[in-house]
Design a protein around this nucleic acid. Structure first.
Lengths: 121, 121
DNA sequence: GATTGACTTAAACCATGGTTTAAGTCGTAT
DNA sequence: ATACGACTTAAACCATGGTTTAAGTCAATC
C-alpha cells in the first residue's frame, strides 16, 4: 500500500493541513494510521474517504451529521440502510437548496436587467 | 402610503423580527422610518427592498457586501454601474457554487447507488 | 389605575467551521 | 553535531450570522 504525508494529502485534496487535523479531532477520520514517528499517514482509501467528506461539506452537510455517518460506518453493515436514508435525505435537501438559490437568482437577475436598461439609455 | 409594523413585516417575509433589527444595525436598512412612539414602520418599498436582501442572503452574499450595495444605493445614480457589476459578479459566483454542489452531489449519488445495490442483494 | 402585549435598546451569548499560535519532536542534509 | 523543514499537540483565537436577555416604554383593554 502507498501512503502519503498530511502535506501531500492536503495538496492532493486542495485543503489546508489544519482542516484535516480538525476533521480528525471532530471524529471524521477515525483510526488514523501513524508512522513510527507518530505522523499521520494517508492510504489511498483514506484519501478517497476524505473526498466523500469534501463532497458532503461542499453540499453543506454539517460536521455533526458527517460525524453521524462516520459513526455508522464504524458500526458496519447493519447501518447501511441508515446511511442510505441519510444520503437520500441529504440529496433532497441539496436539491431544495439549489432550487432556492436558483429562484433567488431570478430576483437578482431582474435587478441586473433594470440596471442594464438604465445604463444603456 | 400603507405601513406595517415589524411583526407584520417579519411575518410577511418569513424571518424573525430580531433578524430585521440586526440587519438595520448592520446598515442594511438605512433611514428607517419610525412612528411617534419610536417604533419601526415598514412601507411597501421597504418590504420590497428587504426581499432583495433576502435574495442576496439566500445566495450567500456576505452581509458586508450587501452593506456595500446599500451604501452605493444611498450615493445615488452615479454608482449604478458599480452595483450592476457587483450583481453580475455575484451571479457568476452563485452559478459556480451551484455547479460545485451539483458535481459534489454526483459523488454522493455514487454512494447512494452502491448502498442501494448492496441492500437489494 | 393596573395589566397586557407589542414595542424599544445595548450587550451578552451562541453555533459553526475552521485557523493560528506556542512549544516541542523527529529525520535528513551540510 | 547542528541546522532545517516537516511534523506533532492543546488551546486560544477568529469571522460569520444571527438569537437571546434584561430592563424599560408605551397604548389600549379590563
Amino acid at each position: 500500500m502507498k501512503y502519503v504525508s498530511i502535506s501531500e494529502a492536503a495538496a492532493q485534496l486542495g485543503i489546508p493541513e489544519s482542516t484535516i487535523r480538525y476533521y480528525e479531532k471532530k471524529g471524521l477520520l477515525p483510526q488514523m494510521e501513524r508512522d513510527e514517528a507518530g505522523r499521520r499517514i494517508f492510504s489511498e482509501d483514506r484519501i478517497a474517504f476524505l473526498k466523500i467528506i469534501i463532497y458532503l461539506k461542499n453540499t453543506h452537510m454539517p460536521i455533526s451529521s458527517i460525524r453521524q455517518y462516520v459513526d455508522w460506518m464504524l458500526e458496519g453493515d447493519s447501518t447501511t440502510e441508515l446511511r442510505l436514508r441519510m444520503f437520500q435525505e441529504h440529496k433532497q435537501a441539496v436539491l431544495e437548496e439549489i432550487a432556492l438559490m436558483t429562484e433567488s437568482l431570478q430576483g437578482i437577475d431582474k435587478k441586473i436587467a433594470r440596471y442594464t436598461n438604465y445604463l444603456s439609455k
